[in-house]
Design a protein around this nucleic acid. Structure first.
Lengths: 333, 333
DNA sequence: ATCTCTTACGTAAGCGCTTGCGCAACCAGT
DNA sequence: ACTGGTTGCGCAAGCGCTTACGTAAGAGAT
């Protein structure tokens, strides 16, 4: 920067002002300095700038998982929203319960960030407190976090849509493959979807049969297991809604291997609209993950640039996508 | 930090030394200071530290895509390798050709990073020059970049394995669904895999029939199109190898819709071992993406901590995974 | 011509660390 | 007791910026 100042015949203060866009320099000098900086391929050091003004321009994204569609898509959305802004993204992954705790403990050390976006994992009360202490802006993407800003879908409604679709097709024995949390802390997703499922049954005056609700580990093999258990029931369901598309994929594999015709003998619907859902023609309830991410990114941006943020809680709509795995129950002869 | 110094009755210099682990403080003072810092929940400001010592501890990961399995998995691997190290990860996404150019132009402004990991996208000569100018450590993950450090698989070999497997099963008309680059710059992957395919045919003294090699856009719909084209051939192939599992998935959908029995009428093998490959029982050549990422992360770590790095070019082995979509050609009656 | 207000710019004091250098104090060796 | 080598620590000079404050010059008003 002193180079530029010397060459332009001004003080470094002016250079700083010219480059940062703050007032106090004439337009003439500003453009002259800018041009010079461009020529010399010069750019201010973010570190020094940050140090001098006390941090600005970095947001951390914390996730429990990266390699899976949902999280990767959220992240993609966030990146899209933040691209072109002057915000840099710092990425953290906390896979295990204990790593998560450590992350929050070390948060002060991370005091290099101005905001935190949490990708859909539960946060304990204690951790919530730590966040408060830090005083950083926090946005939850794909869930809720007390009354802090969040971007999410209505899980109850999503499950209701899936279940309702099957009921409407004439099914009366509709099962639910739900996910068990990967966390010790209660996480809202599975509970909400269970409620949505129940709600749809209730609306149709259908009895909720406990044996038709099975829990399995999140993921496709969990789905496969769960479906196997449902099939081994004395009276198997004629339709099942899965917690997620991935679990539905696993279920589909079990069905294929068991030689059960879909949707002729059994209908299946997932929740997500995973990129592969189209490929295997899975009926599902679409969750706009990319947009969730984008909204989350936009939200922190607004929060950080304290534009007036009218609504800090955004809930995006889900939508039924009917494909090949759902149909009317076979009229048993 | 001055707080700590005051409370411990030493100078801030000693505190800095104690906390950073550098020598020049007695063990006694060091532990005393450390304890105090822990109590006061204090951590050094990374910005200030970086400014003072001239940057250290940040690596940028640049990718063209995030929402897809391959990239997300690479990233996951990198994060895993870097977790626990003192390196922070800054994430950049450059989707379009022009964004990529801008990224490299603005690289100086990013001079906050000590290393760059590029996730499998081509880099022009000009951009390579810019990298040289910057003097940052660069590692290419999932490809090569001149003679710079890289971590990758042998694409030629992968395609050869896939093709060989089909030939071994007795197929003589083996097609290749190749990907067209998403970039204007030539990217090695498709070319190498084409060579591998050709090599396997040659080894088996099989003629390479041009009509059996089709190009399509990367992705499952590209695969679907390509397969449709192959099926409309006067003499369709009895087996096809797809550039990637995703393209194979698309191909599989076309086959299912066309009512063609797999592998009875037609065998299909992909390359990747995508998480969904298992679900749809796709035979494929496994590419250890997570490990690629991990190796890349470990590599930059070593490079940055100038441990002696014997081999900066690591090529990980691929491996055939036989599942349900490949078999012997039907003996035509 | 004088006074005030604005505008353009420079001066210098930090921001919170790291580190080269110097100074005591202490250890051994002779 | 005297010298030379360690060791533990403080001093202070930065690292590359931002910004409050001060100053000088020009614009407008009287």
């Amino acid at each position: 920067m002193s180079d530029i100042a010397a060459q332009a015949g001004v003080s470094i203060a002016s250079v700083s002002r010219a480059l940062s866009g703050s007032s106090g320099v004439s337009e003439a000098t500003r453009t002259r300095i800018r041009r010079l900086a461009a020529e010399l391929n010069y750019a201010v050091s973010p570190d020094a700038a940050r140090l001098a003004k006390g941090s600005r321009g970095r947001v951390a994204v914390v996730t429990a998982d990266l390699a899976h569609w949902f999280y990767a898509s959220l992240l993609e959305g966030i990146m899209t929203a933040l691209r072109g802004s002057d915000l840099d993204v710092l990425l953290y992954e906390v896979k295990r319960e204990e790593e998560r705790r450590r992350f929050f403990d070390e948060l002060p050390a991370r005091r290099q960030v101005d905001a935190l976006i949490i990708l859909a994992f539960p946060v304990s009360d204690q951790e919530r407190l730590q966040l408060d202490l830090m005083g950083v802006t926090v946005v939850m993407a794909g869930g809720t976090l007390g009354d802090r800003p969040h971007v999410r879908i209505d899980d109850v409604e999503a499950a209701r849509q899936a279940t309702h679709h099957l009921i409407l097709a004439g099914h009366e024995r509709v099962a639910l493959i739900n996910a068990t949390g990967r966390w010790r802390l209660p996480y809202a997703g599975p509970q909400d979807r269970f409620q949505g499922y129940l709600g749809a049954l209730r609306d149709a005056a259908l009895p909720g049969e406990p044996e038709l609700v099975v829990q399995a580990e999140w993921g496709s093999s969990g789905g496969a297991d769960a479906m196997a258990r449902l099939l081994s029931l004395p009276r198997p369901p004629t339709a099942v809604v899965a917690f997620s598309d991935e679990m539905a994929f696993g279920a589909l594999r079990t069905l294929r291997r068991s030689g059960i015709a879909v949707p002729h003998t059994l209908s299946l619907v997932g929740i997500d609209d995973h990129e592969m859902a189209d490929v295997v023609e899975l009926t599902t309830v679409r969750q706009p993950v990319l947009e969730l991410g984008r909204e989350a990114g936009a939200l922190v941006y607004r929060l950080l640039n304290d534009e007036t943020v009218e609504e800090q809680h955004v809930t995006l709509p889900t939508q039924l996508v009917v494909r090949g795995t759902s149909g009317s129950p076979r009229t048993v002869g």
